[in-house]
């Protein structure tokens, strides 16, 4: 098994390298560079910049050097000093800008993952053990709805309903009073009271999908002979269901964590734009629009790295929980 884990770890290295290069290429793809975008922006407001100043700015940021040099400087900085370069737009080191936001994105993603499971597992088990009951049908309908509504649309609707019926402003992660306050229990509480909206938005889609999987898996497992053996041993229905089939039916859950994470992070990016959350979404969007390449690159890189780690962890977890794989 150690061999397997080592193998998986080794494989993630080329993946990382490819992702890094891909990221850099993507952010270099747009014609022109930050300065062009910057000048275009200034022109809109009526200012004009002469060629000399433009060249000066380019030189300052190293934009006039060959592509591979820029890449090596960039990646070297990250690897050696954890320095992600300078945000051209904000005139601040990228690392100062992103960690807070990535932290919040990860927090929301993790909470959503937990929420997804908290919804999907019990309901899936219930639906399978009480197949075709009224609640089973109800959950099926809700599940389909959850699968059909895109995250950002759900966020919009929640926002509108909150406003319409509760005169409650859904959006953001902090009340204005706490926005810039230092961390305290009160601020944390305030965070929690705002957090449920994005978490709910992000978990419904995933939960709806997982629910179907869980139900199908459970139905399949419940039909297997070992379930009958378990009853024949004298176990009660509850014991049988939770001790055996749930464990087997959960395997696909664990193996999909790796894929769930990228989806959640993606979902967070777009939901955050709608709900105006101080997570990665809005900033990433802006940096892409402005060709603030080191900032955008930093985001894409770190988010990708986290998903790779997530996939890795889920593979390892799967091996640990399923003896059939563990011993082969």
């Amino acid at each position: 098994m150690a061999g397997y884990i080592a193998h998986r770890l080794l494989w993630s290295i080329p993946t990382l390298i490819v992702i890094t290069i891909a990221t850099f290429v993507i952010i270099q793809l747009p014609p022109g560079d930050y300065v062009t975008a910057y000048i275009a922006e200034l022109v809109e407001t009526g200012e004009v910049i002469d060629a000399e100043t433009a060249a000066h700015i380019r030189h300052e940021f190293g934009l006039d050097r060959p592509m591979y040099e820029q890449f090596l400087t960039w990646i070297g900085g990250i690897l050696l000093h954890g320095d992600f370069g300078l945000s051209l737009d904000w005139k601040l080191p990228v690392s100062e800008l992103i960690w807070d936001r990535i932290g919040l994105t990860l927090l929301i993603s993790m909470l959503s993952l937990l929420m997804t499971w908290a919804i999907a597992i019990p309901i899936g088990v219930y639906s399978a053990t009480r197949q075709y009951s009224f609640l089973d049908h109800l959950f099926t309908v809700l599940g389909f709805l959850g699968r059909g509504i895109p995250d950002f649309l759900l966020a919009l609707v929640l926002m509108w309903m909150g406003f319409l019926y509760f005169n409650f402003h859904v959006g953001g992660l902090f009340s204005p009073a706490y926005e810039n306050a230092p961390w305290s229990f009160a601020k944390f509480g305030d965070l929690l009271s705002h957090l449920w909206v994005p978490v709910l938005v992000l978990s419904t889609g995933g939960a709806a999908g997982l629910l179907r999987i869980m139900r199908a898996n459970m139905l399949e497992e419940l039909g297997k002979p070992y379930v009958e053996t378990a009853y024949a041993q004298g176990l009660s229905e509850r014991q049988v269901v939770w001790r055996y089939p749930v464990r087997v039916a959960l395997n696909p859950f664990i193996s999909t964590v790796g894929w769930a994470l990228p989806a959640l992070i993606s979902g967070d990016v777009i939901t955050a734009v709608v709900l105006n959350l101080p997570t990665t979404g809005p900033l990433l969007l802006r940096s892409l629009q402005n060709q603030d390449m080191y900032l955008a690159g930093g985001f894409i890189l770190i988010l990708s790295v986290f998903t790779i780690i997530g996939t890795l962890l889920s593979d390892i977890l799967l091996v640990l929980t399923d003896p059939r794989i563990r011993h082969s």
């Binding site: 747009p30 894929w259 993606s266 969007l285 990708s304 998903t307």
Partner: peptide
Amino acid sequence: RMAELVRSIPTIPLWLGLAAALP
């Protein structure tokens, strides 16, 4: 591996990145 790679990248940021590249 290629498929795995593509799937392990969070899609929306990637879409955004690629789409932003369109003039």
